[in-house]
Amino acid sequence: MTAQAITKKDLRSYFTKEKLHRFMFGTREKQGAGKMIAIYGLLICIGFVYLYPIFYMISTSFMDQNDLLDTSVKWIPSHFYLQNYIDAGTSLDFWASFFKGILIAGLPTACNIFVDMMVGYGFARYEFKGKKIMMGILIFSYILPNQVTMIPTYVLYNNMGILGTIWTFALPALLGNGLNAPIFILIFYQFFKQVPKVLMEAAAIDGAGHFKRFFRIAVPSAVPAIVTVVLFSFVWYWNESYLTELYVQGLSGNSIWTNLVVQLKNFDSSFASKATVGSTATSLNESVRMAATSLSIIPLLIMYLILQKQFVESIDRAGITGE
């Protein structure tokens, strides 16, 4: 009786531990509740770190001066004060800077996509003499900081007569040397390495040449990589204020080219000059600065949301596996 009682007790303990283990860690078919709580808790904490500044910026941008001085107003303003955005947009010269910024970031991004995709395809699909050396130079050029080549590049652009024009961004991208172009080449290289060789061989047997195989097979299958490159390239060019001021605007300051990030960098002085001539109704405060910051990042947020959806859908549609 004692041995039988001990055995039943051990079985109850075993099943209790087994249930607890399944509840915490789950099984092969189902995730455990404890594991899911830990994962979602970690994601919520990380998301809070990223979203808190955005929520604070948007909330503050709608506050008037009374709300800023009132300690009882924390997150929700007493009323939505839109004059901050009107004043910030006027000081930023929003629409002109927005469309110029689209050109400054969009044109080299388009060049990056076309040229870097061809270079990545060449590295992935062809064997030629000096390939490993060129790959090493490519990786080294990505490691090399921009500050090392900044002055020689400035002198070169000045001698070429393109300083203060959009060609200082577009021309290097057209030659495969755009902003962070090596990493885009490596993205396309890695993607094209996964395309099955039998597709290319079948197209070659059917009489398709090198360019026809590239445009008919490689490019349509590279939609996820293209969307990734578009997103990163556009964001990097859009946020690059120092090189934009140095190359596109030029140190002379006579160039008409600018973007919202550069305008935001000089926002305080621009707002003060506009207020001097009486074109602004409010004084410069934290709410106006937050409104200007919101206007500068709203285009990127919209583009990111659109491209993120397309990126996920393109992965679902591209059922390509490596060999």
Score class of each variant (00 low, 15 high):
Y121K: 00
A275N: 09
V195H: 08
S91T: 10
S59H: 00
K212I: 03
L179D: 12
I256G: 13
L307P: 11
V248H: 01
L231F: 15
F94G: 11
I217F: 04
L107Q: 07
V312H: 12
L301Y: 06
G136S: 09
I37F: 10
I44F: 14
P53N: 03
L295S: 07
S61G: 05
L179H: 07
L179S: 09
E29F: 07
S72N: 08
I185P: 11
T90E: 11
I205A: 06
N266V: 09
I205Y: 10
A181E: 02
S13R: 15
P108I: 02
T109E: 10
Y142P: 05
D116Q: 14
I187C: 08
M118F: 08
I46Y: 12
L301D: 13
Y121W: 14
V73F: 02
M118D: 03
T109D: 02
V119E: 09
S78L: 01
G89F: 09
R28D: 15
E240S: 09
F123I: 12
K265G: 14
P108D: 06
K17C: 04
L264C: 03
V49A: 14
R125M: 07
F94L: 10
G41H: 05
I39F: 10
M117Y: 01
G253E: 06
T282H: 10
K309P: 05
S13V: 08
